[in-house]
Simulated scan of single mutants.
Amino acid sequence: MIDFRSDTVTQPTEQMRRAMANAPVGDDVYGDDPTVEFLQTSAAEKLGSEAALFCTSGTQANLLALMSHCGRGDEYICGLKAHNFKYEQGGAAVLGSIQPQPVVNQSDGTLALADVEAAIKPDDIHFARTRMVSVENTIGGQPIAMDYWPQISQLCHTHQLKLHMDGARLYNAAVKLNVDIRDITRHVDTFTLCLSKGLAAPVGSLLLGSKEFIKTATRIRKMLGGGWRQAGILAAGAQIALDEMPKRLHEDHELAEYLALRLEEVEQLEVDRERLQTNILYAHCRLGKARELEAFLKQRDILIFGAQPIRFVTHLDVNRNSVDQLVAAIKEFYR
Rank of each mutant, 00 (worst) to 15 (best):
D3I: 06
D7V: 07
V9H: 12
P12E: 06
E14Y: 11
R17K: 15
A23V: 08
G26Y: 11
D27L: 12
Y30F: 15
Q40P: 08
S42N: 13
E45H: 12
K46D: 03
A51V: 03
L53E: 09
C55A: 07
T56R: 13
S57M: 06
Q60W: 09
L64P: 05
L64D: 03
R72P: 01
G73C: 01
D74H: 07
C78D: 03
C78L: 07
G79A: 14
A82Y: 03
E88M: 10
Q89S: 13
G96Q: 05
Q101R: 15
V103R: 15
V103I: 14
V104F: 14
N105G: 07
A112N: 13
D115T: 07
V116E: 07
A118Q: 09
D124I: 02
A128T: 07
R129V: 08
T130C: 01
R131L: 00
M132W: 01
S134M: 13
E136Q: 11
G141I: 04
P143N: 04
W149T: 03
Q151F: 04
M165T: 10
M165G: 03
D166K: 01
A168I: 09
Y171L: 04
A174D: 02
N178P: 00
N178K: 11
I181Y: 02
I181N: 02
T185N: 01
T185P: 00
D189E: 01
D189H: 05
C194I: 00
K197L: 02
K197D: 08
P202Y: 02
L207W: 08
G209P: 02
I214S: 03
A217E: 04
R219V: 05
K222H: 09
R229W: 00
A235T: 02
I240S: 01
D243G: 00
P246G: 02
K247I: 00
K247S: 05
H250A: 10
E257R: 14
Y258V: 10
Q268K: 14
E270H: 09
L281T: 06
L287G: 00
G288W: 07
R291W: 07
A295K: 15
L297N: 11
R311Q: 13
V313K: 11
V313N: 12
L316A: 15
N319D: 15
N321W: 12
S322P: 13
V323T: 12
Q325L: 15
K331M: 13
E332I: 08
E332G: 06
